[in-house]
Design a protein around this nucleic acid. Structure first.
Length: 617
DNA sequence: AAGTTCACG
DNA sequence: ACGTACGTGAACTTT
């Protein structure tokens, strides 16, 4: 047995590394009596679904003692770790979805077995304060949390290990795979992480008690985390032949338009300075500036120069500038090629799937994000080309999606008690259009599609906290027109301003934290408390989706669920059952919040996700 | 590492 | 005192 001692918050703690069968029996004997253990893993990397991925150690710990089990050594080490993984009643894990998926793929202990026994200290910490250190929060990683709650002198176990790797000629990328399994720092830090996790948990419980964080909210977040890890494990099937074609096509298109740009002296279309200089040299005038004072040459600037509207259609207002158009096309093809098509190819696993990480509490507002293999929430929707690469789960499956109708406006009506908006949602039928309804409230029955667009902009402006100038720029209407629309909007829906003032006042009285309808704590930035309306609506909308996801799991739909996209669930189902499945999804997303009906509509596509955006399969 | 741009809801 | 579009992930260039 190798034993290390270390000081944590004034206590001497012990890290044990069993080497013999006797040591392992002692470990099991120690673990047997523990009702709860902190749990962590060390692995060769983060690419869980790659064939090269391996589990190296499994660590178990209490506030005073940690055991580092060298899984890599096989045999009795497996048996001992497995026995404790199967028999310990509860585990504390910091960022549990990662370790669930690691253990699920590398040991016989499934995520299904672990998840119901897990408390995730990262979830608890985020429910206290979701902010990263850059945003003025403690942070949500184990290191800053340990430093704040447990021991100010807690080492940066990850950062220090990187230094150890570097001193051995290894890198952050290959160090975790190649460092000697018996390296003292590696083992000590592996042990310390579970000790910090064990000590963090009661501190977070005390914070929850002090701040009134609801236990029901904590449980709910664990359920959501499990469902998202389940989706991540299943992954998305790719059409690999199509991915090849797509990459070739986009790379050719990038090269073609980059060549045109180079004839005008632009060597790199992604260099704003080069593009600006060349355009000025062609006699164009550029007026917009970036935050740091450079000339702005983004899409919004270039499209008019190329005589193209927002949908890339010819306007006919001027002679198109050929450089502006070439830069636009080269940049779009380049981004689609590298960010989407190349990522598909480089991330695909042996079974032809990608496994994007679903981060269940990523945003300040609790919103989820998707990262890793693919930022699946941000695939182009103006064109089917990229989504066409994603297929249903099996040859007999089709892809569908079911999304809420105007969820943030409905949530706004409910939370702010907006009387006439609520009346609209209550009396409107399945095809109710809140923006047209608003236009008609103000302009009368003769409201036009253009009026609808203006009031839609005014509505979003309200929710997002935008000013006249920004809303005008976004909608393309004049500032005078927007000013009138916003004033009219405030007259028909006066409750929004009142709710904003009330929420801001309450937040100022409680340390600049606004509490969402589900009890989520949302810290505001001091200089933009107006964002409280957006925070309240975005956060509540996220929890409406979260509740719908629980309904889906209860209805047995988890195996059909592929991705959560803010107000939408993408699913895959056998073609023969898809109509029933789609109806079930709609049912799970239909609910009532404070008298405002929430409704969802499913769309059934074909073999690929692109079919929902116009692709023919 | 910071800045800019662009993809989404 | 006044007014502020919100939330993300990723690639690429420049510093």
């Amino acid at each position: 047995m190798i034993t290390y001692r270390h000081e944590v918050a004034g206590d001497v703690i012990t890290v044990r590394i069993p080497e013999t069968d006797t040591d392992l029996r002692e470990f099991m004997h120690w673990a047997r009596s523990k009702p709860e253990l902190a749990l962590d893993t060390e692995t060769t990397g983060l690419d869980i679904f790659r064939a090269t991925f391996r589990l190296r150690t499994v660590q178990f710990g209490t506030a005073h003692e940690a055991w580092v089990i060298h899984w890599e050594r096989g045999g009795r080490f497996h048996e001992a770790a497995e026995w404790v993984l199967k028999h310990c009643p509860r585990f504390l894990i910091h960022n549990a979805p990662f370790d669930w998926l690691v253990l699920d793929t590398t040991t016989p202990v499934s995520m299904e077995s672990l998840a119901p026994r897990t408390t995730d200290t990262r979830i608890k910490a985020i429910l206290v304060d979701p902010r990263q250190p850059e945003e003025g929060g403690v942070g949500t990683a184990l290191k800053p949390l340990s430093g704040f709650y447990v021991d100010p002198s807690a080492p940066d176990t990850q950062g220090d290990l990187t230094a150890v790797f570097n001193s051995m000629g290894l890198t952050k990328a290959n160090g975790f795979a190649q460092i000697d399994l018996r390296h003292p720092t590696y083992n000590l830090y592996a042990g310390l992480d579970v000790i910090y996790t064990a000590r963090l948990n009661p501190k977070l419980d005390a914070e929850h008690e002090r701040l009134g964080v609801r236990p029901r909210l904590v449980d709910y977040e664990h359920e959501i985390a499990y469902m998202c890890a389940y989706m991540q494990r299943a992954g998305l099937v790719l059409d690999l032949d199509y991915v090849d074609t797509l990459r070739t096509m986009l790379h050719e298109e990038t090269a073609k338009f980059a060549a045109i740009a180079s004839m005008y002296g632009v060597e790199s279309v992604n260099s704003g300075a080069q593009v600006a200089e060349a355009l000025l040299g062609m006699g164009e005038t550029l007026t917009q500036r970036t935050k740091t004072g450079n000339l702005k040459v983004d899409k919004a600037v270039l499209l008019p120069l190329a005589d193209l509207d927002r949908d890339w259609e010819r306007i006919g207002a001027r002679e198109p500038n050929p450089l502006a158009e070439a830069v636009l096309r080269a940049k779009r093809a380049g981004k689609w090629g590298s960010t989407y098509a190349d990522r598909f190819a480089s991330s695909v696993d042996e079974s032809g799937r990608i496994h994007p990480s679903i981060n269940t509490l990523q945003a300040r507002t609790g919103r989820m994000s998707i990262s890793g293999d693919l930022a699946a929430q941000t695939l182009p929707s103006s064109d089917w080309m990229i989504r066409r690469a994603v297929l249903g789960d099996a040859p007999d499956h089709v892809v569908g999606s079911v999304d809420f109708q105007a969820i943030e406006m409905r949530v706004l009506a409910a939370l702010a008690g907006v009387k006439r908006m609520t009346e609209g949602f209550v009396s409107g039928g399945d095809d109710f259009d809140i923006h047209m309804y608003t236009a008609q409230l103000i302009k009368g029955e003769g409201a036009t599609k253009r009026d609808r667009k203006v009031f839609k902009g005014a509505g979003f402006g309200k929710v997002y906290g935008g000013g006249i100038e920004t809303i005008a720029r976004q909608t393309g209407a004049t500032e005078a027109e927007i000013a009138r629309a916003v004033a009219a909007y405030d007259r028909v829906f006066p409750e929004i301003k009142r709710a904003s003032s009330r929420w801001q006042r309450e937040a100022r009285n409680t340390g600049l934290v606004t509490v969402s309808v589900t009890g989520r704590r949302l810290p505001l930035d001091r200089d933009r408390t107006y964002a409280v309306v957006n925070y309240q609506c975005q956060s509540a909308a996220r929890d409406v989706l979260g509740q719908a996801m629980l309904n889906m799991r209860d209805a047995g739909l988890l195996d059909y669920m592929k991705l959560p996209i803010h107000d939408e669930i993408v699913f895959s189902a056998p073609k023969s059952d898809v109509k029933d499945v789609a109806r079930e999804f709609e049912r799970c997303m239909t609910m009532d919040i404070f008298g405002v009906p929430v409704v969802a509509e499913a769309e059934i596509g074909g073999r690929s996700w692109g079919s929902l955006y116009g692709a023919d399969i």
